[in-house]
Nucleic acid binder design. Structure first.
Lengths: 340, 340
DNA sequence: TTGAAAGCGCTAACAA
DNA sequence: TTGTTAGCGCTTTCAA
């Protein structure tokens, strides 16, 4: 069974090829009765357009490329699922382009990509989307793109992001509501915009309750298990220990749990530990980690919508769309012990 | 700057388009000097072929589709990386098709996919590749495919897999070499071929050392954290406890660690726990989990090679290519306590 | 509201 | 060894 072509449909419907094309593209000025005839023929022949031919002629490809440089497989997995779900609704395909955001050739790689692979638009995840040179290149080349989990605003491109600061405030308030005041904070990797936003949220919440932040309670981290471990070791051998540790992500929180276990500190009775991101590990560890979940799937879907609007040169009502994180309480954080 | 076409190259090199096409396709019977001229023109114009046009004309798309139904993001992530790396070498693109292996419409979804999306071949991961109806459909439709991590042989398609049985033997031997004889085993989900292979390896190793397997030491699991927890609870409240637990994957091993911690059983001094798959969690937990690592990246690369050979109708010397797992010793397993 | 013809960039078939 | 011509399946332009 050779695949049906537009010609077969035209013949079957008794109209010209062009008319079929008009129906397929939802162009106006087609008589309803004609449209019906064509649609019937399409259905009977199980006709689907050859995307290659469409792309060739109209200089479109219905492909969008996801550029990512993120060591968190769970995040990428969920992101892809969200993108795929929306792409398939809108008739687009997804191309993957992993990269290293620190690669000195990043700009050339991206330039090569947009010059030589057919695609209609790009989805950039952080931290690549926060790279100004990359954004400028894309604007110069006229390649539509949308930013995901971004931390820099940009008038030339739409973006979606989670309000990290707000979420960090909520988490800090949660710890305070459990009675904690001696709260330590482990920062993330300085290359990531989230690092600062999360820290600022922590500071703001502490300030709003007039709780002083002990400078020895703030440690640098790097979003890795080992960096969480190291920070925790410093925090927990101090004479004046915190009663709660807010880690900027779950990997580091897992590192904190390790150190606590080694030092014989019981979590959550002697120490509350919270993380960020709702990474799979936060449920696969004991105690399971109280954390903040980004709606990654929805973020991704919305980014695709924004990108497709941009591709089709439609109005983008909101340039940067904000999402909220969800506080997920698990076993690693609890009320402070009174008789301490 | 409009993109250069094959016409521009032909003009610049002073030859016909067909000659350029010959050079691009590495066809024989081109005079070396002509070839050089063309290659120079290609380089100067930074010409790259328009894949859409190639695909349309030659009825190829240089797209391969990965069909997966696997809840382990780390596995998929690594698999994609391996596939992408090899695809880019061979000039192919990757399309993603997540699915649910239990979906009653799976067959129709795949039929629709191969009928209506241009692609040259399919990569099937387990358990989808072990579905005979799916394989028969693809053979019937003449769509080339390769199987990844497969457990059924198939004369009509190439495949790559890890020798799970061998790996399980190695792990069991490892535990035995640490002095353990009271070894429990938690099986995986019965829908996955790995489940049986891993169990058989365990049994074989035990038998080879003439160690009897206590039937109460074998529990059903489902590859989930909760199922590991449940199995461990049953195992560890018995009067006659095992001194080591071999979990069929890391998620379940993490569940075992939780129960051990709750029951005050120290790992690894009082109990050794080992897993399988080298999932990220195995390093993000304390004690870190001794496990088996599949060379997923290499598996994926090889599968792409096999598939492309199949697409190009080249000889496939080896139909099913075997890989070995690597035993990774971490903190969760140690020598048995003598003075028990 | 509809159609005829041209052509997107490339390769296959055939000819020279 | 190289070139000419046609055409993949569709959309665009222009005309009716």
């Amino acid at each position: 069974m050779a695949k049906a072509t537009i010609k077969d449909v035209a013949e079957k419907a008794g109209v010209s090829v062009k008319t079929v094309s008009r129906v397929l593209n939802d162009e106006p000025r087609v008589k309803p009765s004609t449209k019906e005839k064509v649609e019937k023929a399409v259905a009977e022949l199980k006709f689907k357009r050859n995307p290659l031919a469409c792309g060739l002629r109209s200089n479109q490809s219905f492909v969008v490329t996801l550029i990512y440089s993120n060591p968190n497989p769970g995040y990428i997995y969920e992101l892809q699922n969200g993108i795929l779900s929306q792409c398939s609704k809108l008739g687009y395909h997804l191309q993957l382009q992993p990269c290293d955001y620190k690669d000195p050739n990043l700009l050339e790689i991206i330039e090569d990509l947009i010059e030589h692979t057919p695609q209609d638009g790009l989805l950039l995840t952080h931290p690549v989307c926060d790279n100004q040179a990359v954004r400028e290149l894309l604007v110069k080349k006229g390649m539509p793109f949308a930013r995901i989990s971004t931390f820099r605003e940009d008038k030339n491109s739409p973006g979606v992001y989670c309000n990290d600061k707000l979420a960090a405030i909520e988490m800090t308030n949660h710890l305070i509501s459990l009675g904690h005041t001696k709260i330590a904070f482990i920062k993330g990797h300085p290359d990531f915009g989230a690092t600062e936003k999360r820290y600022l949220g922590f500071l703001e919440a502490m300030k709003s309750w007039d709780i002083e932040v002990n400078p020895t309670f703030v440690k640098e981290g790097a979003f890795t298990f080992a960096s969480g471990e190291e920070a925790a070791r410093k925090l927990l051998i101090q004479k004046d220990k915190p009663t709660a540790i807010f880690s900027s992500n779950d990997y580091m929180a897992a590192g904190v749990l390790k150190v606590a276990a080694q030092l014989g500190i019981n979590v959550p009775t002697d120490l509350s530990v919270v993380g960020y991101d709702d990474t799979p590990v936060s449920q696969q560890i004991w105690p399971s980690i109280t954390t903040l979940r980004q709606p990654i799937f929805e973020l991704a879907q919305t980014a695709v919508n924004q990108l497709v609007k941009k591709i089709k040169k439609q109005d983008i009502s909101e340039q940067d769309i904000e999402f909220k994180c969800e506080l997920i309480t698990r076993a690693s954080a609890g009320p402070i012990k009174i008789n301490k």
